[in-house]
């Protein structure tokens, strides 16, 4: 028996529907997994990998819900309409929906900046869930800087002044205007939330947390995440951290996949309480 996939729009108060993909296991679910996607272009690059993983998790008994946050993917409105607060509200709606299915534990799974949305949601809602974080972004400000860099580098390639271009975008954001970078319009409400977000968890967070990285032939660990894992451990958080071989599929030129990451994730989910 195979996992079954269906799409629907989850209504969210006042701002239309969120495109959702639900992947259901063949039998009775052992629990549920909610996927929170990364930011902007990284979401598009990683669609295939997320779909393959959802399929695999469902085959192993998990009910998997993938939601396109407000203004992203096939959800209502444009990226420029999205705010950070909307995204947290979207997680509320998806969480309630999954809880309503009554299938036991609901785990949160993220890629890249999805980890920041999850961390902020946990902090503001006080909810507890086992976490499967793929290549998490630690610092929203740095992530925004990396994104704005697209503006500067395209200027650099045209041999004009990259520094001036980035400074101009930053000044526009600070004065409360929306800016356009690489085809994405960023509203001040989104930028403020993103740059204030940090990957942090409450001391003695009572559910297991898995940080999974991918990269290169050996699957090395990033220094920033090694330090974060040590800090969390010292604060009584049950965290595991592992690297896996494979390409950085969220940003590679071609659409690529990292099967080793999916296998490792299946094992992690297996160990989560149900």
């Amino acid at each position: 028996m195979r996992a079954r996939r269906s799409v629907s729009f989850l209504p969210v108060d006042g701002t239309g529907g969120r495109f959702c993909v639900l992947t259901e296991p063949p039998g009775e679910p052992r629990g549920a997994v909610l996927y929170v996607h990364p930011f902007a272009e990284e979401m598009n690059k990683s669609r295939r990998m997320a779909a393959l993983a959802a399929q695999e998790f469902a085959t192993r008994g998990w009910l998997v819900l993938q939601i396109d946050l407000h203004g992203c993917g096939d959800s209502s409105d444009d990226f420029g309409d999205a705010s950070w607060a909307d995204w947290l509200t979207d997680i509320d709606a998806a969480w309630r929906w999954l809880e309503g299915r009554g299938v036991g534990t609901v785990c949160l799974w993220s890629l890249r900046a999805g980890s920041l949305v999850i961390a902020d949601w946990i902090k503001t809602r006080g909810t507890v869930a086992p976490l499967l974080l793929w290549q998490p972004v630690i610092d929203g400000r740095q992530h925004l800087t990396q994104f704005l860099r697209l503006k500067g580098v395209s200027q650099m390639m045209e041999e004009s002044d990259a520094k001036t271009a980035i400074a101009k975008v930053k000044a526009e954001l600070e004065s409360g205007q929306s800016v356009e970078v690489a085809g994405y319009t960023l509203s001040p409400n989104l930028v403020t939330g993103l740059q204030g977000a940090r990957l942090e968890l409450p001391t003695e967070y009572p559910a297991p947390v898995a940080l999974l990285e991918v990269g290169g032939a050996e699957g090395g660990l990033s220094p920033g995440l090694v330090a974060l894992a040590q800090r969390w451990e010292a604060r009584g958080i049950k965290v595991t951290h592992a690297g896996n071989p494979g390409p950085a599929f969220w940003q590679t030129l071609e659409i690529e996949v990292a099967p080793a990451l999916i296998d490792a994730s299946s094992s992690v989910l297996e160990g989560f309480p149900t």
Partner: peptide, 29 residues
């Protein structure tokens, strides 16, 4: 293959893999 998107991808990954931060004025062609 090294277009502007790829240049940014390389800079970002250097930051994350080596654990340093690149300032706007440090990089040019």
């Amino acid at each position: 293959e090294l277009d502007s998107m790829a240049v940014v991808g390389v800079i970002n990954m250097l930051e994350e893999r080596f654990g340093f931060v690149v300032e706007d004025d440090e990089i040019d062609g």
